[in-house]
């Protein structure tokens, strides 16, 4: 397998199991919040933004910790962010076109 010739600064130590479990706990809380929001009639007016924010939070947590982007080379973040950016921009443009 291809590894850096010498140990370069791009490979940081990954966090330990405790961090992962903590992240899982936060993810669980966020998921419970999502489903609760869905069932509380009083929140019906603001449900859409709340759900979107919660889902973005979960997304970022998994990407940053479980996929190690927080600790890994910025190049990986850049490549992935570029794909996400184009995808989100096009999906939003299409939703706008169809809402128009």
């Amino acid at each position: 397998m291809s590894h850096p010739g010498g140990e370069t600064s791009v490979e940081h130590a990954h966090p330990g199991a405790i961090t992962y479990v903590k992240v899982a706990a936060i993810l669980a809380i966020l998921t419970i919040t999502e489903v609760s929001v869905y069932y509380i009639p009083a929140l019906m007016t603001i449900i859409t933004p709340v759900l979107i924010v919660l889902s973005i939070a979960k997304f970022l947590l998994v990407v940053a910790f479980y996929m190690h982007l927080k600790f890994d080379s910025r190049l990986f973040t850049g490549i992935f962010a570029w794909g996400m950016f184009v995808a989100i921009a096009i999906v939003l443009a299409m939703i706008a076109l169809y809402a128009y």
């Binding site: 397998m1 850096p4 791009v10 190049l75 990986f76 992935f80 996400m84």
Partner: peptide
């Protein structure tokens, strides 16, 4: 870049 080919491949694929 000092990065592994395989990991770079996977991230590019995910994008």
């Amino acid at each position: 870049t000092g990065l592994s080919h395989n990991k770079l491949l996977m991230w590019t694929f995910l994008a």
